[in-house]
Amino acid sequence: MTFHTRSNSFPSRPHPIVQQVDEHLYILRSSEVTSTSSSSINHNLSSLGDLYDCVDRLLQLPLTQQALAQEQNERWTNDLLDGSLRLLDVCSTAKDAVLQTKAYVQDLQSIIRRTRGGESEALTSEVNKYLSSRKMVKKAIQKAMKNLKGIDSKTTFSSLNNDQETVAIVGKLRDVEAITLAVFESLMSFISGPKSKPGSWSIVSKMIPTKKVACEETEANEFAQVDTALHRTSKSNNAQNQLEMLESCIQGQEEGLDSLFRQLIKTRVSLLNILNH
């Protein structure tokens, strides 16, 4: 006698889109998500973009929409919506940080070109504006990081009525949220850089080139290098070169965050459509 049973889980051979989501999750988990190098961070932002392309297709699957639209699972769909809003807030904080820094970097470059690196009231004023803006950026990032640390990424499925399809889908989407938050945390740590040391801010000495480079400057990222150059009282690398490297770094992050922000909005809209279906 043969018995036929109906499985409530993903088929033994998952849908190709589900497999693609798993592959992109694996790539990000295998990468240096916590790395503080600009190349690694830009690579992770790009990988997140690829992941969310797959997530959007996953949310369009009838299997996904049916599972998340069930009334008894409305709580978990709302949790996913809350998560999507949290991700948008963090992404917006990172975007504001890089855009604000970019504006001040460009102003500094303009002043340095006009004054040829010499001391002037305009240059002193612009440096002070940049340093003040960095303080505001760091405060915003610290607040966002504090909010991140308060997030409980663990999910229980006690109210899913043993619906393995929904358990698998919600679990996968929560995995996506967790890896996204990890990348954002790494990015914001990169932007924030090390805490500034107290001391006087001599302007002219920051702008004069030298062959000697402090060890901490060569190891620091682009944001930290400029912060250090504008804070140190000893001679440092040519500030213009450092500002150009920072601007290039910011450009890559700005493009990655712009694209990712649009994808996060698209994901949130898809979840809203499922809930309101």
Rank of each mutant, 00 (worst) to 15 (best):
L68R: 02
T218R: 15
L28M: 03
S192W: 00
A69G: 09
N276G: 09
Q100T: 14
N221G: 06
A122S: 11
A122T: 11
T5H: 04
Q72A: 03
M1A: 15
G49I: 06
T218E: 03
E222N: 11
E74G: 14
V55H: 01
S38G: 04
K102Y: 02
Q106P: 09
P198E: 07
Q19F: 06
L108E: 02
T233S: 11
G118F: 15
S153G: 08
A122P: 02
L63M: 09
K211E: 11
I17K: 01
Q251L: 10
L131Y: 06
A229N: 14
V98L: 01
Q263T: 13
E126F: 03
N273G: 03
E247I: 00
R232V: 07
D89C: 01
S189F: 08
C249K: 03
M136W: 06
L51M: 06
T36A: 09
A144P: 05
L260S: 07
L271F: 00
E216T: 15
S125M: 03
R57P: 06
R116G: 08
N8A: 10
S35K: 00
N42A: 12
D107R: 14
D152H: 01
H277L: 12
M136Y: 14
P16E: 00
S37V: 12
S84P: 00
Q142I: 13
N44A: 03
I250W: 00
L81F: 06
Q72P: 01
N78E: 14
E247Y: 04
S186V: 01
A97W: 02
P11S: 04
N44T: 05
S259D: 15
F3C: 11
T155A: 05
F223M: 08
E219S: 14
N42P: 12
K139D: 12
E126D: 04
Y104F: 11
H231P: 13
Q66E: 12
N147C: 10
P11V: 00
S132D: 13
Q225I: 05
G199N: 05
L131E: 04
E71K: 08
S186Y: 01
C215V: 13
Y26S: 15
G83Y: 01
V269T: 14
S110Y: 09
F261G: 12
L51K: 02
S84N: 04
N276A: 11
Q20Y: 03
S84H: 02
I169Y: 00
F190T: 06
V18G: 05
E222K: 11
Q60C: 03
K129W: 02
L87Q: 11
